[in-house]
């Protein structure tokens, strides 16, 4: 087995890496690039702590190989702040106490940011009564769409409040 050269673009910055093809995107971020904001909770796609945004879509970075992401635009929790200011979603999570231990939090926030984009694009969810229509972002819709992010501290209700706050144009 030999290593593969791959250039990863993370938060707008290109990183040339020489990687064992077995390295997941998650481990590449955490161990090779030292960007530990993205968390490893299960390494099996079952908790959502590793959620990052790739080409605008949220994915589990533990279930994809880094070598499969040459040329992709990868956004992690470290890339959400702008000019040193918290992203509105980050600020809302703090304000609504949508976190406790903090370990699922970066994944929750990346997921929530992508959720708003998915909703804006008119994507339905299993909570949508008529999938042919563009759904209204009710609390039930938010909860269903966030169910891929487990929070064992169970800050779920506060997470829903934070997301609704941002969706409604929330304050910072």
């Amino acid at each position: 087995m030999h290593n593969e050269n791959v250039a990863l673009t993370v938060n707008g910055r290109r990183h040339a890496l020489d990687l064992d093809p077995r390295v997941t995107l998650l481990d590449a971020l955490r161990e090779n690039l030292g960007m530990t904001g993205t968390k490893k909770g299960c390494d099996q796609g079952q908790c959502g702590a590793c959620t990052v945004i790739v080409n605008g879509q949220r994915i589990n970075s533990c279930l994809t190989l880094a070598v499969m992401h040459a040329g992709d635009e990868i956004t992690t929790i470290e890339g959400l702040e702008e000019d040193g200011n918290l992203h509105p979603m980050q600020a809302a999570f703090v304000r609504h106490d949508g976190l406790q231990c903090g370990y699922c939090t970066p994944g929750q926030i990346c997921s929530a940011v992508a959720l708003l984009a998915e909703h804006k694009a008119g994507w339905p969810s299993y909570a949508t009564a008529d999938v042919a229509t563009a759904p209204v972002l009710t609390d039930g819709e938010i909860a269903e769409r966030m169910s891929g992010n487990v929070c064992r501290c169970s800050a779920y209700s506060n997470i829903v409040s934070a997301i609704r706050d941002v969706a409604e144009g929330g304050r910072i």
Binding site: G37, L80, E81, L86, V94, D97, L99, G102, T105, P106
Partner: peptide, 12 residues
């Protein structure tokens, strides 16, 4: 707000 909130929401 929790004082470590900012660190946790930024992944720091």
């Amino acid at each position: 707000d929790r004082v470590d909130g900012q660190l946790k929401v930024t992944g720091r």
